[in-house]
Nucleic acid binder design. Sequence first.
DNA 1: TTTGATCGGTAATTGGGATTTTCACAAGAT
DNA 2: ATCTTGTGAAAATCCCAATTACCGATCAAA
Lengths: 205, 205
Amino acid sequence: MARTYGGVPPEQRRAERRERLLTAALELFTSTGFRQAKITQLCTRAGVSTRNFYEEFGSKEEVLRTLHDRINSLALTHVSAALEEVRDADAMTRIAKLLDVFVATVTIDPRMPRLNYVEAVGVSPELEEQHQVWVDRWATFIETEARRAAEAGVAPNRDYRLTAIALVGAATGLLREWQAHEPPLPVEDVGAELRALMLAAITRP
Amino acid sequence: MARTYGGVPPEQRRAERRERLLTAALELFTSTGFRQAKITQLCTRAGVSTRNFYEEFGSKEEVLRTLHDRINSLALTHVSAALEEVRDADAMTRIAKLLDVFVATVTIDPRMPRLNYVEAVGVSPELEEQHQVWVDRWATFIETEARRAAEAGVAPNRDYRLTAIALVGAATGLLREWQAHEPPLPVEDVGAELRALMLAAITRP
DNA sequence: TTTGATCGGTAATTGGGATTTTCACAAGAT
DNA sequence: ATCTTGTGAAAATCCCAATTACCGATCAAA
């Protein structure tokens, strides 16, 4: 059953095809748009047959969901690692770090915010649910830092849930604008704005 | 050519059909979703034939664009009128008013934020452009109020462009969450959060 | 009341694209 | 050497919904 081909085990060949499909999908979905992207186009770009496509994914949407998850996971990993590095720093330093790393990660490639904040919106109930889950995770992250600030006495002791959600929205909106804006907005301005906004939102009386 | 039917001039009948189509579309697009909504479904619900549909609109997307514009226009009208009423009030009162009226208008019907912030995203280049235009308008609105606050000496004198865009994003994100959240988020909390966030963002040093 | 134009709904038509299947071949395995 | 199985390309099928064409119904004017 499992048979090595060209010295490459089938597992790996599958994985490579999957990877090529995802790479091609990121490009196609963000250039022509998810709606108008055809599966055949996707396969052609990836150098994969439609048959292989259906071996990896059940539908175009499943590809989109995978990418959406990946991008968020990537950002979360980076942010978590960065926060580990400043584990014992004061609350405000940590918050600044959190945002800097997040913005830096997502703006490496304009296609990432485009896919996450434009193409993956309003596609299906499943994707909306996935979006909700991620908003929740990010909001929890922010909430945790806000509490830490409160405990350190540099922020009031209150419920930060809605503030956190609003800040996630602010980041989303700003990045959506960033990827679409002509002429391009300076990345550092976006990062600085978010940092200042978050500090102001948390330390407000 | 133009002939009255049932005592009703053709102009008016057209307008009524158009209105019924828009009403049905708001309902259909926000329940089954824009993507999966079929034109025939829409026509059935509106009590209009497909033929009449194409007499009014060139495509499903055109209906969506019309609704998107309408909802934004409605909110803008309300907000403008409200600001007229407090023309001579201090900057902070005006800002609070702006947000209260905006939130109040858009949350009258959960289908409005659903359509504007979920269904109308990532549909087509034209719609993205329309979105950009509205973000720009709202941001300009906020910017103007911020400048007024700066002139009154209650806020620093700086460039508020990015802050304004971020605040529009915060409102969008919060309302998107509001319309999807289970159990429902209290509207007054959403309004209060936005008001506090905006004040903090503008008065920050 | 007859006539003729306009209207509106239903019923094809069409076209595009997703999914499946076929086929021929290449590359191990025995 | 022969058999088996994984593979890619392309064709065939199928499905569905947008768009159009037709036909009977409707109403106003003569």
